[in-house]
């Protein structure tokens, strides 16, 4: 049995929910940690393990509000894993706020770079204008 990874959101790292039993896969918040390797490596290992015996359907939802460049690399690594297991009925959902061009562009870039079932989903978050820079 694969233990879930549940990490609460912090000022520099996103909330992570990777729960095979409940079929929930979510990354939300900001990833601006300097030592992104330490943060993302366990997540990548988790997915490697997961894809050995995946659920019948895997939807990873990302709702990112900021991404630094080293974290972008690790997200790419996760997407590459999804790509390698593309026959497992998997999908990426990239949420972005209607007013947030930067995150939208990042999503489009990933979509372009992968052969995944990659959905860009616009949301309207009323609180969004209060985007919080407090890290």
């Amino acid at each position: 049995m694969l233990e879930p990874i549940i990490l609460e959101i912090t000022k520099t790292t996103p909330e992570i929910i990777l729960d095979k039993d409940n079929n929930v896969f979510k990354i939300s918040g900001r990833a601006i940690i300097e030592n992104s390797q330490e943060f993302f490596n366990p997540i990548i290992s988790w997915f490697e393990e997961y894809f050995k015996k995946p659920n019948s359907k895997t939807e990873l939802t990302l709702n990112i509000d900021y991404l630094n460049s080293s974290s972008s690399l690790f997200l790419m690594k996760i997407f590459v894993l999804f790509e390698q297991n593309i026959n497992t009925n998997n999908k990426i959902i990239w949420m972005y706020d209607a007013s947030d061009d930067l995150i939208k562009e990042r999503g489009e870039e990933y979509k372009l770079l992968t052969k995944l079932n990659f959905e860009l989903k616009e949301t309207i978050n009323e609180d969004y204008e209060d985007f919080n820079f407090d890290i």
Partner: peptide, 30 residues
């Protein structure tokens, strides 16, 4: 030092669009 700096920029640029906010944030972090 990064956190307080970013917050200071944010709190005092209320009339700047979110897009510019994000860009500043982006550059500062990097």
């Amino acid at each position: 030092a990064v956190g307080p700096m970013l917050r200071m920029v944010e709190e005092n640029m209320q009339n700047v669009s979110l897009k510019v906010h994000k860009k500043i944030f982006h550059f500062l972090v990097e």
